[in-house]
């Protein structure tokens, strides 16, 4: 079934139509916990993407060696090894970021996005396709984390990409934006309720865009006032 999907289809799935955070609603724990700022969200997203790519490729390579009865423990061990490697790397090269994200990096092991892609995709597909899938899914997840983190940071703290230099080097210090010291942030945006409300609004926004796109595709430009209820005549099967 999956073999019929083109690479472009895979990328579109990962970034939009099967976005792991907005559509599949997987990996909500790190999504909620680490998106207190755009920088944290980006860091967590990149770490998840790295693990996802490594694990998808590995799982795809060993997919014919692993017996189906033990595949899940094997996948989890593969993922756990890579998470440990990524955690140690972050600790070595981005120590400040490690202090912020520290607790949640090991939890990438339990992130359902990764085991989900390993089980649903990588264990049934060739290496190159597994890599594309991991990249698309990872970037889609990262984007949501970053947007949600940016929303919460802006509303709660009045800044954007605060401390981005921790992640992206000293050059990124200019990236951080501030609304000024007079901005009185709503603390709730930083706290857990803000994550739930923010994610809900993002999902609503995505659904709204999808509905609009579908409606625009269905209604010909010559008849803009027509109601949307019934499908176009072209959709009817030919006799």
């Amino acid at each position: 079934m999956a073999a019929s999907q083109s690479s472009a289809q895979l990328i579109r799935d990962g970034l939009w139509s099967n976005n792991q955070a907005l559509v599949a609603l997987l990996g909500l724990c790190p999504l909620m916990a680490t998106t207190t700022s755009a920088t944290n969200g980006l860091g967590m997203g990149l770490a998840t993407t790295a693990v996802l790519m490594l694990s998808n490729v590995t799982v795809s390579l060993i997919r014919n060696l692993v017996r189906p009865e033990v595949r899940l423990p094997v996948f989890v061990m593969v993922i756990a090894s890579f998470v440990t490697a990524v955690e140690l790397s972050i600790q070595a090269y981005f120590y400040e970021l490690y202090l912020v994200l520290g607790l949640f990096i090991p939890l990438i092991v339990t992130n359902c996005v990764i085991i989900g892609r390993a089980e649903a995709f990588a264990s049934k597909n060739r290496v190159d396709r597994a890599l594309i899938d991991a990249l698309a899914m990872g970037i889609g997840f990262t984007l949501v984390l970053m947007v949600l983190g940016g929303m919460r940071e802006l509303l709660g703290q009045g800044t954007l990409f605060y401390q981005a230099d921790l992640l992206l080097g000293a050059a990124a210090a200019n990236l951080s934006v501030s609304l000024g010291p007079d901005f009185q942030g709503a603390l709730i945006a930083i706290l857990p309720p803000g994550a739930f409300i923010g994610l809900g609004l993002l999902i609503a926004l995505k659904n709204l865009i999808d509905t609009r796109l579908k409606r625009a595709a269905r209604i010909p430009a010559t008849k803009p006032t027509q109601d949307v209820a019934q499908p176009m005549p072209a959709a009817q099967p030919a006799p």
Partner: peptide, 8 residues
């Protein structure tokens, strides 16, 4: 509660 948590 929203306001109390946001602007204590």
């Amino acid at each position: 509660v929203f306001l109390l948590v946001s602007f204590p």
